[in-house]
Amino acid sequence: MRVNRILLSTALVVVALVLQVSVLARLHLPGAVPDLLLLTVLGLALVYGHVGGALVGFGAGLLADLAPPADHAAGRYALVLCVIGYLAGLAKPDYGRLKSATGSMLVVVAAAIGSTLLYALVGALVGDTAARHVGLGGLLLTAALYDLLLAPFVVPGIMALARRAENDPLAEPGSVAKGTDISSGWLSSGTGLRLGGRRGGRGGRGGRGGLKAKARIRTARVGRIKGVKRL
């Protein structure tokens, strides 16, 4: 990954983790806890693609595994967010531009449900059955609901920061070239000049052709005048 991607991703992940642990986890909402870290990974994955999303997800999950008050095996949430970041990166929109809010909301809901299921599955494999006592159905419903309500305030801002860090916000490939073609066409139609010295320049072909044409006209006029004098 690029240096600017690493720095931005690290800063956003740390801020999201601090807010999630110190604020969202203390709200004591029924069911799941709003996963601000997951939404941060989704926003970055929708700009960086599947490879960047997997790397950011793994790093964010590993940081959450090691940060207190984590009470599960290290690497469990890292695996979950790595998979979610990879899959979300596959849904990366063209040029990082969201065509509609519906698609992004579906990605958020699918990520919330998928991360909860995958986290419970990995927990079952390592012998952690806490999800059974809490109720997996309630966790899925509340996780999707909380993340969906929080997503409009997080995901677009994360994507905007990521695009700005790329130094190419919402720029489509070839847009600069298209702008140049339009400007050159406007210049040629408005002034009779063409870029590249083809027409209207002193050193261009069009300039030399115009001079030759004028010289021929002058020669013809002189010949006619001399002919009249001879008569």
Rank of each mutant, 00 (worst) to 15 (best):
56 V>A: 12
87 L>G: 05
209 G>A: 15
103 G>W: 09
3 V>H: 13
230 R>T: 08
89 G>Q: 02
179 G>Y: 03
23 V>A: 14
207 G>P: 01
38 L>V: 01
13 V>S: 10
189 S>Q: 11
140 L>C: 07
111 A>Y: 03
103 G>N: 09
91 A>E: 00
107 V>F: 02
203 G>L: 13
160 A>M: 09
99 K>Y: 11
48 Y>E: 12
201 G>P: 07
60 A>Y: 03
64 A>N: 00
114 G>P: 00
74 A>H: 10
141 L>P: 08
57 G>K: 03
195 L>G: 02
101 A>D: 10
175 S>L: 09
10 T>L: 12
92 K>I: 09
190 G>F: 11
94 D>Q: 14
122 V>T: 10
15 V>R: 13
113 I>Q: 04
176 V>L: 15
88 A>Y: 02
135 G>V: 13
178 K>C: 09
40 T>E: 06
169 P>Y: 10
123 G>Y: 01
188 S>V: 08
22 S>D: 14
136 L>H: 03
21 V>M: 12
73 A>F: 14
108 V>A: 03
149 L>T: 01
181 D>V: 08
46 L>M: 14
148 L>W: 01
146 Y>P: 00
179 G>R: 13
22 S>V: 14
151 A>C: 05
168 D>M: 09
224 R>P: 05
83 V>Y: 00
98 L>A: 13
217 I>C: 02
212 K>N: 10
149 L>S: 06
62 L>E: 04
144 A>Y: 04
122 V>P: 02
213 A>L: 13
131 A>C: 12
221 R>E: 11
188 S>F: 03
174 G>R: 05
213 A>Q: 11
145 L>M: 01
82 C>D: 00
158 I>E: 06
7 L>V: 15
15 V>K: 12
42 L>Y: 01
4 N>E: 11
126 V>S: 11
63 L>S: 07
106 L>M: 12
16 A>G: 13
37 L>S: 07
110 A>V: 14
118 L>T: 03
196 G>L: 06
